[in-house]
Simulated scan of single mutants.
Amino acid sequence: MSETLERYFVPEPSRFPIFGSVALLLFGAGAALWVNQVKAGPWIFFLGIAILIYMLFGWFGQVVRESQGGKYGTRVDASFRWSMGWFIFSEVMFFAAFFGALFYVRVLTVPALSSGENEALLWQGYSGAWPNAGPRALDTAAVEPFTPMGAWGIPAINTLILLTSGATLTWAHYGLLKDKRGQLKLGLLLTILLGAIFLGFQAYEYVHAYGELNLRLDTGIYGSTFFMLTGFHGLHVTVGAIMLTVMLCRAVAGHFNSQHHFGFEAAAWYWHFVDVVWLILFVVVYWL
């Protein structure tokens, strides 16, 4: 094994962690000030966003240049794989907390509060039926009853879209392993387009929920858990589509080969994780 593969590359000191810290500070402070209607809030918020974008382009660009320069060996590659694995594990725990909250509310709390003297703790006429819109659903004079989101229709179509996107991404990966650059680029492009279509359908679903089903974020515990889970998943689809777009740009620029392409693999791992989360979400939130 060559000396390059044996040694561990130690990067030079970087300014980008400081920029990232400042960006997150301005992002959080600006959001808090904006919510509290301070005039400077939006400016501070978007300044944080701008610095964060600069940091991402600069830092990841530096890593790409180091990788293309042949500075990374097997030890660095192993570190990257462990890092991405732990990152995805943290995302698993993130969604596990939300799915756990849904399970606790739907299976334990809602039925328990409808039994015996517990009913008096809430309001007259409370039942443990799911979905539950909370006390606002009782005031029919002020608000129309909501309709739960069904599983068949847009959610089922989106499930098929994400499953297809997983297949096109795997096809792109096989193209990379066989040094078929055209298959790699086409597979990535199709995956990104399918992700964009998924997000478009989800946006339409939200408009339909608010405008026609009267299903809103404040529609009791059902509305809050529905939009929390689907909204955060949509955010992850957006992040995954951005990652795959970067991979497509790198593939067009001639990056990656059949032996060295962890950047592509990391984005693919993330996308397949998003697919699996959606399958669970479709069954638990939409179907059951």
Rank of each mutant, 00 (worst) to 15 (best):
S67L: 07
A50N: 01
G69K: 03
M93T: 11
Y104C: 11
A78N: 13
Y72S: 03
W59S: 06
A101L: 15
Q62H: 12
G58A: 00
G61W: 06
Y104R: 07
F46H: 12
G41T: 03
Q37L: 14
R81P: 07
F60G: 14
S79T: 10
G100D: 05
W86V: 15
S67H: 07
R81I: 14
P42V: 03
V105F: 09
A50T: 09
Q37H: 15
A97S: 11
I51R: 05
T74G: 11
F89H: 02
V105C: 08
S67E: 08
W82Q: 14
L47R: 05
I88Q: 06
Y54C: 08
S90G: 11
A101V: 11
S79C: 10
I44F: 01
Y72F: 15
F87A: 03
M84L: 06
F103Q: 08
G69A: 02
V64S: 05
V63S: 08
G73M: 04
A78K: 12
K39I: 14
I44S: 00
I51V: 11
F98S: 09
F99M: 05
F60T: 15
F89D: 00
D77A: 13
F94H: 04
L47G: 00
V92F: 15
F87I: 08
R65T: 04
Q37P: 08
I49P: 04
F99Q: 01
V92A: 14
V92S: 11
V64R: 09
Y54D: 01
W82S: 13
K71G: 04
T74A: 14
W43N: 04
F99L: 06
W82N: 15
E66A: 07
G73N: 01
M55S: 08
S67D: 10
P42L: 02
